[in-house]
């Protein structure tokens, strides 16, 4: 069973005895949703919630989101795709296919939650494919355009 945090796989030895789970520094008594753990002699309340492959964990004011990773899945994003940061509407496309762009150059203007957001190029390169045009509604996480990074 593998989980990642901030895109990095977590690799830890875990021992299970009944409903007690232990890692090198921590002992945790499992119960649904809210459970207690002991770490360096201190007690921590841990709240866990799950949605699809997302696992949300709250520990004393800190919130971590872990992702369940299928064995053998490729987590590296090596496509040149530009991802919509949130659902919304494309207001304006500022580039055309084949155009050279530089890092930080505005590519699109999106509207979400009644505010405008600029989508800027993360790299120097060339716009190879545009998937949307002005007035299109987009879901969060979809690829908006492909940029071929220049060497």
């Amino acid at each position: 069973m593998q989980f990642s945090f901030n895109g990095e796989l977590i690799d830890l030895e875990i021992e299970k005895t009944g409903t007690t789970f232990s890692s090198p520094n921590i002992r945790l008594e499992y119960s649904p949703k809210t459970m207690w753990a002991t770490m360096n002699g201190r007690r921590f309340k841990v709240t866990v919630a799950n949605h699809k492959d997302e696992w949300w964990v709250h520990i004393s004011g800190q919130i971590l989101k872990l992702e369940y990773v299928e064995q053998g899945a490729n987590t590296a994003d090596d496509s040149g795709g530009l991802i919509a940061p949130m659902p919304g509407k494309i207001l304006e496309v500022l580039v055309v296919e084949g155009q050279e762009v530089t890092t930080g150059q505005p590519l699109m203007i999106m509207e979400a939650m009644k505010m405008e957001h600029k989508i800027v190029s993360p790299v120097n390169g060339e716009v190879s494919t545009l998937y949307f045009q002005a007035n299109d509604q987009v879901e969060g996480g979809v690829t908006l355009m492909e940029i071929q990074e220049s060497d």
């Binding site: 989980f3 890692s23 945790l28 921590f44 696992w55």
Partner: peptide, 16 residues
């Protein structure tokens, strides 16, 4: 250690 604890809790919840 917070990541370790979060992982442990997630691992436990997932496996149960």
């Amino acid at each position: 250690e917070m990541i370790e604890l979060a992982y442990l809790a997630t691992y436990a919840s997932h496996s149960m």
